[in-house]
């Protein structure tokens, strides 16, 4: 379980998070929805300790993240897979090396076992015969899928998706959305999807947290949110008024 308790974060004079309260239950897929710059990605980075809150508490599996030691953070990070907005594939490595990266760094698996796991992960994201390609030979959608395969390589307890469909054409965005939903159903991994794509969030999420001005403005299942105040907040967000 992941918990944010009254989390504040500022960058110089810019107050990005202004008291976030959010609990993510085990096995659920929650989407964080909101306009650009409202602190969605910043929230994700607090979970793996890339950013520290100015105030407030971040808990993962009962552990207080800001006070974790280096070794505790390393252990936590092995349990959390992250798909970055740009996929953040290592461009000096092939697809196979990218997916195998954590396995090589953190496990004592043999090359044969690593090869098997890499192929398994790539098959889960419906990619075949791409192991030897370099990231610059992949399309945007393929890069995201390789990023997802890399995030899953260590069989994590959590997967954090930072804008998984941003920059993709509508058809590829639907395919990636379906993939995220299918993987969550198959593996029951607790997943947090940061997005500003209302349709994606409504289609795949158990719950949606709508961020506004650095706070959780609304929280509930897609159905609940669309009926809360007759869905005014969602409508305002879609109309660019949030």
């Amino acid at each position: 379980m992941i918990q944010f308790k009254d989390v504040y974060k500022s960058f110089d004079d810019k107050h990005v998070l202004r008291g976030i309260n959010l609990t993510v239950n085990d096995g659920e897929l929650i989407s964080i929805l909101g306009p650009s710059g409202c602190g969605k990605s910043v929230t994700l980075k607090h979970i793996v300790g890339i950013l520290q809150p100015d105030r407030g508490e971040v808990w993962v599996d009962g552990q207080f993240v800001p006070k974790m030691s280096r070794d505790e953070l390393q252990k936590l990070r092995k349990r959390v897979g992250v798909l970055f907005q740009s996929a953040a594939l290592f461009d000096s490595m092939s697809v196979k090396e990218n997916v195998a990266f954590m396995l090589r760094m953190h496990t004592k698996m043999t090359e044969k076992e690593i090869d098997y796991r890499v192929t398994e992960c790539l098959e889960q994201v419906e990619l075949h015969d791409v192991e030897e390609l370099n990231p610059d030979e992949l399309s945007g959608g393929m890069r995201k899928r390789v990023g997802l395969a890399r995030a899953m390589a260590m069989k994590p307890n959590y997967i954090l998706y930072d804008e998984p469909t941003t920059g993709l054409d509508p058809k590829t965005a639907i395919i990636i959305g379906d993939l995220v939903a299918r993987l969550q159903k198959q593996t029951k991994i607790t997943s947090i999807v940061v997005t500003h794509d209302v349709k994606l969030a409504s289609d795949i999420s158990d719950r949606i947290a709508l961020f506004h001005e650095g706070k959780v403005a609304a929280l509930g299942s897609p159905d609940e949110l669309s009926h809360q105040g007759d869905g005014q907040l969602i409508r305002k967000f879609m109309e660019g008024q949030l």
């Binding site: 980075k45 793996v48 300790g49 890339i50 280096r70 953070l73 390393q74 252990k75 936590l76 990070r77 092995k78 959390v80 992250v82 970055f84 907005q85 740009s86 953040a88 594939l89 290592f90 461009d91 000096s92 990266f101 954590m102 760094m105 953190h106």
Partner: peptide, 21 residues
């Protein structure tokens, strides 16, 4: 330029998130 490119394209963040200093 190599590390700088990794920094601006989130590859350094990816390293941290994967438990690699």
């Amino acid at each position: 330029s190599e590390i700088g490119t990794m920094k601006v394209s989130e590859q350094v963040d990816a390293l941290i998130s994967m438990g690699v200093d």
